[in-house]
């Protein structure tokens, strides 16, 4: 009996040793020589593998950084300037900095202001619904509310608000990786420059219909009246296709345009309440999120 055990142990050990030696030499022979800096750069990256930089994963981005001379077109939105600085330090180059950005949803057509006109009975995803038709309201530009954006968000920065039927961006978690921008078939997300205290003013509408039609389909639609355009002292507002757009780079957050808007389609978020002002719709809304994180953040923003 003992001999059997002995032979088993010996033969198996022998086998193992042989395999190890073979593997060692094969690994030596076929080793791929890589720039060690790729590993270092990868180490410095957030390893979210979110694809926000345009590469499939952090390693691919690291390789591109090492190869590139001037970081042309290379930026990690998740890690932001800090990460890019450390990457630049590893490679001994100057960092290219960008303003931090945050995603905003350019639609405020919640269930109560945008009446439903049809019942959608297909697969509940935005891409499939939008391939079929404009959506279950008369506004063919607005949010469909099936949450493709929530699905793709890797950073827990988006949650569906069940009362409004719209996704809510959590400014703290949002890394501006752009996944939601790509996922939204209605192209409703915009990555805007982050302002102080996450304050923002933007036109929460993409409806290009003429005023009357737009207003009929949604109470808070931009009707293209140009009032905001006229009042803006910084030329930050442009009018195109019956739709106003506020350029975040030019906007100085003076808030002059907000009260001008006859349909309340310009939202101001993160500001202290003004006197005699009607509160903006989104601030009142309580977010239902199982983790409670989003609602907390919004309350915090208000307090600031």
């Amino acid at each position: 009996m003992n001999t059997v055990i002995l032979y088993t142990i010996l033969s198996l050990s022998g086998l193992g040793a042989t395999a190890a030696i073979v593997l060692f030499f094969v690994a030596q022979k076929f080793r791929v020589k890589e720039d060690p800096r790729i590993d270092e750069v990868e180490e410095a990256l957030p390893s979210a593998n979110c694809g926000g930089c345009g590469f499939p994963g952090c390693r691919n981005f690291a390789e591109a950084c090492v190869k590139s001379d001037d970081f042309e077109g290379l930026y990690c939105p998740v890690g932001g300037n800090e990460t890019m600085r450390s990457v630049a330090k590893i490679l001994g180059r100057d960092a290219v900095e960008q303003d931090p950005r945050v995603a905003v949803l350019r639609c405020n057509g919640s269930c109560d202001v945008r009446p439903q006109t049809t019942y959608y009975d297909g697969t509940a995803t935005c891409v499939i619904a939008s391939a079929l038709y404009g959506g279950d309201t008369d506004c063919q530009y607005g949010c469909l509310g099936f949450g493709d954006c929530v699905e793709v968000c890797n950073f827990d920065a988006l949650a569906m608000d069940l009362t409004t039927g719209l996704p809510v961006v959590n400014d703290v978690n949002c890394t501006a990786c752009g996944a939601c921008v790509k996922a939204c078939p209605k192209d409703l997300f915009e990555l805007r420059k982050r302002a102080k205290k996450d304050r923002k003013i933007y036109v929460a509408c993409r409806n290009e219909d003429k005023g009357g039609i737009a207003k009929k389909s949604c109470e808070v639609a931009c009707i293209g009246c140009s009032k905001c355009f006229k009042v803006c002292p910084f030329e930050a507002i442009t009018m195109e296709n019956n739709l106003a757009f506020i350029d975040a780079d030019k906007c100085k957050l003076c808030r002059k345009c907000v009260p001008e808007c006859p349909t309340n389609s310009i939202l101001e978020i993160g500001f202290p309440p003004r006197k005699e002002k009607v509160e903006v719709a989104t601030e009142e809304k309580k977010v239902k999120d199982p983790n409670g994180t989003v609602s907390e953040e919004i309350i915090k923003n208000k307090e600031e």
Partner: peptide, 10 residues
């Protein structure tokens, strides 16, 4: 909601 016509892919 029942009064609305249904729209779905074929």
């Amino acid at each position: 909601m029942n009064k609305l016509i249904t729209v779905a892919p074929s």
